[in-house]
């Protein structure tokens, strides 16, 4: 079962820019670049703070905005040779064109969604299949706002941090230590199963070291290892001082 998680964020850098233009009630043909660039960068910071994955495209548009801003600050190049070419166009023109185009398609997308849709508003015979009776329960979407999701994400990150700490722990285990620990245990109990040797902290590293320690102790003839049957518990005995 999969859940679709929808975030009410922007569909891309152009979407964010259009939102800012609308929010500030700005004429799209006369965008105050300094104001919009500042607000755009503030939004990027906010999205970063929320740990939202910032796609590279957002940064590309930020660079474009800064580039336009710098070009607006420069004095217009002087007309050479008595104005052969009118190359002194508004540096914002290309961006405005892109915004208008995007806006048209964004509106077209909304219009598509407003149509009568198959399997949402109208149905034909056969498809999609009818729900089997046991699955007909109401499946409600999970509702969570963006902050709940960010919290959940940060909880997961916190758990990842703990996993990192465990890796640092590995340094402490050495084969010699493990051999001594096992001998100490066996001195008290005379015999133990391999599982009992693992005590409470079962990590992959500990299992490997325990296994190596047992092999080493067998080689040194300090312990004997028995198994009653295949897959039965492995019993480890200390070799008594005879």
């Amino acid at each position: 079962m999969s859940y679709e998680i929808k975030l009410d964020v922007f569909e891309g850098p152009l979407d964010l820019l259009l939102y800012l233009i609308r929010k500030n009630e700005i004429d799209i043909y006369n965008i105050p670049i300094a104001l919009i660039t500042r607000q755009y960068l503030e939004y990027l910071d906010l999205m970063k703070a929320l740990n939202l994955d910032l796609a590279g495209e957002y940064l590309v548009l930020a660079a474009t905005l800064l580039h336009i801003k710098s070009r607006l600050l420069l004095p217009a190049p002087e007309q050479e040779d008595g104005g052969a070419e009118d190359e002194t166009g508004d540096p914002r023109a290309e961006l405005v064109q892109q915004l208008l185009e995007y806006q048209a398609f964004k509106e077209a997308a909304l219009q598509l969604d407003r149509r009568t849709l198959l399997d949402r508003d109208v149905f034909k015979r056969g498809a999609p299949p009818e729900a089997p009776p046991e699955e007909r329960g109401e499946e409600t979407p999970i509702e969570a706002d963006i902050f709940t999701l960010v919290e959940a994400f940060q909880r997961m990150l916190a758990q990842l941090d703990q996993a990192d700490l465990m890796e640092i722990d590995l340094e402490r285990i050495s084969l010699a230590d493990r051999i001594n620990e096992i001998m100490d245990c066996l001195a008290l109990k005379r015999d133990m199963t391999f599982a009992e040797l693992m005590d409470e902290q079962i990590t992959r590293q500990r299992i490997v070291y325990t296994f190596l320690a047992v092999l080493e102790l067998m080689k040194l003839r300090m312990i004997r290892v028995y198994q009653a049957a295949s897959f039965a518990a492995i019993r480890i005995f200390i070799v008594g001082e005879e």
Binding site: L117, D121, P129, A131
Partner: peptide, 29 residues
């Protein structure tokens, strides 16, 4: 083709499996 009347969708949806597959805004764009 024959299609059910759009105003009857709430009832037909109850018959059909799952929620209708919606396209995301990104997919629609």
């Amino acid at each position: 083709q024959f299609y059910s009347r759009p105003d009857l969708a709430p009832w037909v949806r109850k018959l059909k499996a799952g929620r209708p597959q919606m396209l995301s805004p990104a997919a629609l764009e």
